[in-house]
């Protein structure tokens, strides 16, 4: 069987993508085409009592993902005449599209990404079956533009590719300094290799589902779809911003109010923070008037630089990690879950 799947700007033809591969990576298929090729129509799933079990499974698959769990494969189910797990994935996507509930699509993509991750890792390490290892390398290459080379038990990728992904992680062990780096390559275990593209895998599945077209309502699917709509309400979140500043910002303001010297990094933090919160240069400038070296012209000029009016760069607030390294961080419990002072006080209700 030849499965063709389209990405945004190129088409990959994976020759001989067998059912046992599609079971692991069902998002590689084009749902409609896959069903068509096997001689099924969507309508059948709504009406044929034998296929109802698959719709139930699909629904379960969504529920499981909404609870943050990973749907467990049942290997035996795929030995039956019909590739049940592939069907349940495809039908789940249809149900999600019909419900139009974005929160559920998010949760579903994430869970499916985690599921695929496990298979990818296993396949990478597969020494017996070279084609399995090859497919996983190909997925990494074509979906995430990461060229992974296998050298004995180790995997290497280009430092530049590594950085593009690793900068999204905040744990220290992902810093380049904590990696074995030689000849422009970073050495990784299979687990780390796959972990590196976790976010992208999630995003890939998410955009794929999002960009696929929504069919007309299918007779027999209505109850499932209604239940999903109900379920989604549970996850609706609203955020409110408290007016309170994070401790690092309070500290910076205090220092300035006392007329003490705030190091450049502290001023940068304070200014970028307030600018990002929507304050104007004119509102912020007076804060600095007690500084020992206050010069109104210079201050306004510098603030304009930061805010981007003078046309160089718009600066983001430094991350908590950065602030910490500058000894300007004075964390309180509310700081535990944030990585940038700008997020302080953003609460879910």
């Amino acid at each position: 069987m030849i499965a063709i799947f389209k990405l945004s700007w190129y088409t990959i033809v994976m020759v001989n993508l067998g059912n046992d591969e599609i079971v692991k990576y069902p998002f590689l298929t084009e749902a409609g085409k896959y069903l068509n090729d096997l001689g099924f129509s969507l309508e059948q799933f709504g009406t044929d009592p034998d296929l109802k079990k698959i719709v139930d499974n699909a629904f379960e698959r969504i529920i499981t993902s909404s609870e943050g769990r990973i749907f467990k494969s049942d290997p035996s189910s795929n030995n039956s005449a019909l590739p049940l797990e592939i069907f349940s994935f495809l039908i789940a996507v249809i149900l999600l599209k019909l419900s139009g509930m974005n929160t559920l699509i998010r949760r579903f993509s994430l869970a499916e990404a985690r599921r695929a991750e496990k298979f990818l890792e296993k396949d990478l390490m597969n020494h017996q079956d070279i084609t399995k290892a090859k497919l996983s390398l190909q997925i990494l290459q074509e979906l995430f533009s990461v060229t992974v080379e296998k050298i004995d038990e180790e995997f290497t990728i280009l430092v530049s590719d590594y950085l593009k992904h690793s900068i999204n992680f905040h744990e220290r062990e992902w810093k380049l300094i904590n990696r074995k780096v030689t000849n422009g390559k970073v050495h990784l275990t299979p687990h780390e290799t796959v972990r590196l593209v976790r976010k992208e895998l999630d995003r890939h599945i998410y955009t794929k589902i999002n960009s696929s077209s929504t069919p007309e309502m299918i007779i027999g699917f209505e109850t499932y779809v209604d239940k999903l709509k109900q379920l989604a309400k549970k996850f609706e979140v609203k955020t409110v911003e408290s007016k309170e500043f994070p401790p690092c910002i309070k500290h910076a303001i205090e220092v300035l109010e006392k007329g003490e010297n705030l190091p450049h990094s502290g001023r940068f933090l304070l200014a970028t923070f307030l600018l990002n919160k929507g304050q104007t240069v004119e509102q912020i400038a007076p804060l600095f008037k007690n500084a020992p070296d206050y010069n109104p012209k210079v201050t306004i000029y510098q603030l304009n630089q930061l805010s981007g009016i003078s046309g160089t760069t718009e600066y983001k607030s430094p991350s908590c990690e950065k602030v910490k390294s500058q000894n300007l961080c004075f964390p309180v419990p509310a700081c535990d879950t944030i990585i940038n002072p700008l997020q302080f006080g953003r609460k879910r209700v």
């Binding site: 430092v159 530049s160 950085l163 593009k164 690793s166 900068i167 220290r172 062990e173 810093k175 380049l176 300094i177 904590n178 990696r179 780096v181």
Partner: peptide, 22 residues
């Protein structure tokens, strides 16, 4: 590569952020 990636390269070159496990 962008600015954040370059910051990582700087840290590497400057030997910043190393952990004992490494």
């Amino acid at each position: 590569v962008g600015s954040r990636e370059r910051a990582e390269l700087s840290d590497y070159i400057m030997f910043r952020g190393g952990i004992p496990e490494t």
